[in-house]
């Protein structure tokens, strides 16, 4: 079985300028300790939902990520070996379908032609990543204090 990997660029727009200095215009890798666990009955429910606020100031190498009442402080880490980010693509690619025209009834080729539409695209080469490895700090939001103090007055 052959699965081709084409070297291409993804079609998404460039990232904000603070992030492009991490080496890739279109894609950035953010490493979290643990994972984002979202409770939902169907995985599509979380589509488009907000996770948090990411902040990276110009000239700073201290990114932060605020999720709910937690603030994560991170750092920018150079990867020892660059990552090629590959993305599954199911659009049929013409040149690879031609390879599989063989005698009918050939089981081996049957598998081949099914897989003929499977392709991976290398969408980016990433040399740095952002790592949030520290424990989250609770945010004592200014808004909360304001509400608290105002309720005292009442």
């Amino acid at each position: 079985m052959l699965i081709p990997i084409t070297i291409s660029s993804s079609s998404t727009a460039s990232l904000p300028v603070q992030l492009t200095k991490l080496g890739n215009d279109e894609l950035v890798l953010i490493e979290l300790q643990g994972s984002l666990d979202v409770e939902c009955t169907d995985s599509s429910e979380r589509d488009g939902q907000m996770v948090g606020t990411f902040r990276l100031d110009e000239g700073s190498s201290k990114p932060t990520l605020a999720i709910g009442h937690h603030l994560l402080e991170g750092k920018i880490v150079s990867l020892p070996k660059p990552f090629g980010v590959i993305q599954r693509s199911t659009t049929p690619s013409a040149p690879h379908q031609n390879v599989h025209n063989h005698d009918p009834g050939d089981a081996m080729c049957g598998i081949g032609s099914e897989e003929g539409s499977l392709r991976w695209d290398m969408v980016a080469i990433v040399k740095k990543k952002i790592v949030f490895s520290k424990r989250p700090m609770p945010i004592v939001g200014t808004a909360t204090i304001a509400v608290g103090s105002s309720s005292k007055k009442d």
Partner: peptide, 13 residues
């Protein structure tokens, strides 16, 4: 502006 809203992609599922 250095602040960005991080969301799940509309295509994330």
């Amino acid at each position: 502006m250095a602040e960005h809203t991080l969301r799940f992609s509309p295509t994330s599922s």
